[in-house]
Simulated scan of single mutants.
Amino acid sequence: MFKTFDPVKSLLTLDDVCIDNIVFKLHYKATFVLLMSFSILVSATQYFGDPINCLADVIPPKIMNTYCWIHSTFTLPEKNGIPGRSVVQPGVSIHVEDSDQVKLHKNYQWVCFALFCQALLFYVPRYLWLISEGGKIKMLMAFSNKPYTSDKDKAKNNKLLVDYFIANLHSHNLYAYRFFVCEILNFLNVFLQMYAVDVFLGGEFSRYGLEVINFTEMDQYERIDPMTRVFPKLTKCTFPKYGPSGSVEKHDGLCVLALNVVNEKVYVFLWFWLWFLAAVSAVNLLYRVCACTGVNFRRQIFRARSRLNAKREVDEVFNGCRIGDWFVLSQFSKNAEPLTYKHLITDLVKEMQAGEFV
């Protein structure tokens, strides 16, 4: 079974250079891998049997299975009761045409494709950021990560970094704003996904997780499993067929949807995960708003990242930077060795004092 997930193993590797943050990674790495794994899982029929098995009196099983898979199955929402007594299963009972309310179930054919499309949407902001970032941080790390054979080489490479920052001082705002826009896209994408899944499941996803929690607290003889309502394991299917006299005969069949045993658990997990992701993304956006609007807030963050430097040096560099420069230095500090970053800040102070940057 583990070989089934070989395609997603490479996605779990960490990047050599970090160009985003942990919340961003939860979107394009953790969520992307989860959704791709779920998509592979629900399409691996060898572990769960045939996705649909239908039983009808006179219709050959293969024809019935194919027909019901293509044309969907249905349940009767008003026909609830104790399974095995008043009904076979909740929603499965004698169907009186034109009088019983019918609920069609069409989503089981498309679950693997829906999960795959969701995974791609979670990767879109990452892809846009990769294009916009253009390898800037990787280029800076190429300067700082060069092997030093002497103090002279170390000073030379450090000067390359300082020269870059001085030459491009006050020109990084657009770079930072592009990242902030991608963070907003991540946040909006979560709610777009929730709405899309809710539509896909016929309006059942918005309260799906809460209903599952409430279900576990109810008396076992009175409760109706919400997972069975959204992803029924036993449904009905009607096959129309010409009779001996040329009239249309309708044959009722019972269909077992074995794959829904997996689908229901996948979407329960997905409900909690998307709400967790929305909460974390909201906190991250609040942090970003504070960083963009609060100068003192940015100053405290900069001091925390530059804790090896003297407070005077840190404040002098910060006062000479705009928000884009602050953001690039913050990104660089995530990847550089502490001593390399310390020397960069110290040398930047000297260059700024000499050039009188403000």
Rank of each mutant, 00 (worst) to 15 (best):
V58G: 01
S39E: 09
L257A: 00
G202R: 05
S144L: 09
Y108V: 12
K342H: 11
C292Q: 07
Q193E: 10
L274Y: 06
L160T: 08
P60Y: 13
S99L: 15
N157R: 00
L259R: 06
L329I: 03
S86D: 13
S132D: 09
F276T: 02
K159Q: 10
L41E: 08
H95V: 08
M64A: 12
A30N: 10
V17L: 01
V261H: 09
S86H: 13
A291T: 10
I59N: 01
L76V: 00
D163R: 03
V268D: 09
I137G: 08
E356Y: 13
F332T: 05
C321G: 08
R312S: 00
Q193S: 13
I213F: 02
I137Q: 11
V23P: 07
Y221L: 15
R307N: 10
A258N: 11
W326M: 07
A282N: 00
I70H: 03
M352C: 12
S132E: 15
K159C: 02
V162R: 05
S93K: 02
R322H: 09
R322A: 03
Y242N: 07
F74H: 01
F200M: 12
Y148W: 04
V124N: 10
S245I: 05
L286K: 03
L14Q: 07
T4M: 04
V256C: 11
C321F: 09
D225Y: 04
E356D: 15
I59C: 01
K311Y: 12
F200S: 00
L76P: 09
G243N: 11
Q89W: 00
K62I: 10
E217Y: 12
V262A: 07
L34Y: 13
V33D: 03
D315N: 14
F302A: 01
E313G: 06
F165P: 12
N53L: 14
N53I: 08
A119V: 11
L270C: 08
R178L: 08
C182W: 01
M352L: 07
R322P: 04
L185S: 06
F180Q: 05
I52M: 06
Y267V: 03
N189Q: 04
F24G: 11
N107I: 04
G135D: 01
G294K: 04
G135K: 10
W273F: 02
R126Q: 07
G84T: 02
H251W: 00
L35T: 05
Y267R: 04
C321T: 01
F332M: 10
I301D: 14
Y208P: 02
F276L: 10
F327G: 00
L55T: 15
L192W: 05
E264Q: 07
G81Y: 02
F272H: 02
P7S: 08
V358W: 12
E78S: 15
I40L: 15
V23C: 00
D198F: 08
D153A: 04
G355Q: 08
P244N: 14
V102W: 14
F187L: 13
Y123K: 14
H343C: 13
R207C: 08
V162I: 04
